[in-house]
Amino acid sequence: MTGRRRVAYGSAPAQAARIARILRHRIQQKKIRPGTEIPAHAVRNEFATTEYVALLAITVLARESLVTAPRRGHAARVEGDGTKRAPRLQHEKLASQLQARIEAGEYQPGDWIPGTATLAREFSASEGTVQLALKLLRDTGALDTVPGRGSYVAGATPRGPRKPTPKRATPELTERVQRHLEDESAPGTLIPLREIAASLDVPEDAVRAAVRELMERGTVDCILGAGFHATSGNET
């Protein structure tokens, strides 16, 4: 690792994304050689950030297969030639999708992750696959688990009881949210979920579910560390 530099501004996922970008460049430029350990405490000290942000940055690189997944007591190591590998197994893909939600701020530190059965239904996966995905995220430090209650995003004390999983939005609400975006949000701008909820007089979770439906249609993007953004087109 090189001299101390400070990137500790913005949200934890945004900080982690910036740190991961710097480390990614070093790996690809062979400034960090294959097999080199990247301990979370070294990243924390160099970038003047927290252990959680350092682990999140390393996890981003692990998802890209640039480094091995960090495990408790074992530092991440730079993989082979520093080239990316797409997740191959179903539980790796599911873990990547959940990690993307964490990085986008959909799940904040301390938030409960939906239960195994709920995730299995949402992702059309077996409960065994979900359990493997959650274990992978626990091993990388992205999640912690309370026996008998479930898993939550690491980095903060879990807040209250497990949150209910947002239901799918009604078609009527989805259309109302889309019309609001077309009228009020320029392409590429951050979608203010709370403001839309207040404007439409509906719960924020309902707006979030509607935005997720629009993301599946291609009307909305989810950008790393920045939340939901309107796209340049309104494809339906």
Rank of each mutant, 00 (worst) to 15 (best):
Q131C: 00
E46C: 01
I27C: 02
G35P: 05
G110N: 13
T36W: 01
I102E: 06
R6H: 03
Q15N: 08
L193T: 15
F228D: 15
Y152E: 03
V60E: 11
Y52E: 14
I223A: 13
S199Q: 13
L134Q: 06
L55W: 03
I223T: 11
T83C: 09
H41F: 03
R217V: 08
T68Q: 09
E235D: 14
C222H: 14
T83D: 11
A17L: 10
S65Y: 09
S11F: 03
E213V: 03
P158W: 03
R101P: 01
A69T: 11
E92T: 05
R101H: 07
D144C: 03
H229F: 04
G155L: 04
A198V: 06
T219Y: 04
R168G: 12
V130C: 12
A57C: 08
F123A: 14
L200G: 07
V130W: 11
R179A: 13
P70H: 06
R176H: 07
D139K: 08
H74A: 11
R71Q: 13
Q178H: 12
T129I: 13
I196M: 11
T129P: 05
V53Y: 00
K167S: 06
G218T: 09
R85E: 15
L89M: 14
Q131S: 13
A169L: 03
T231A: 10
G3V: 02
A133E: 09
V60D: 09
G105V: 08
V67T: 15
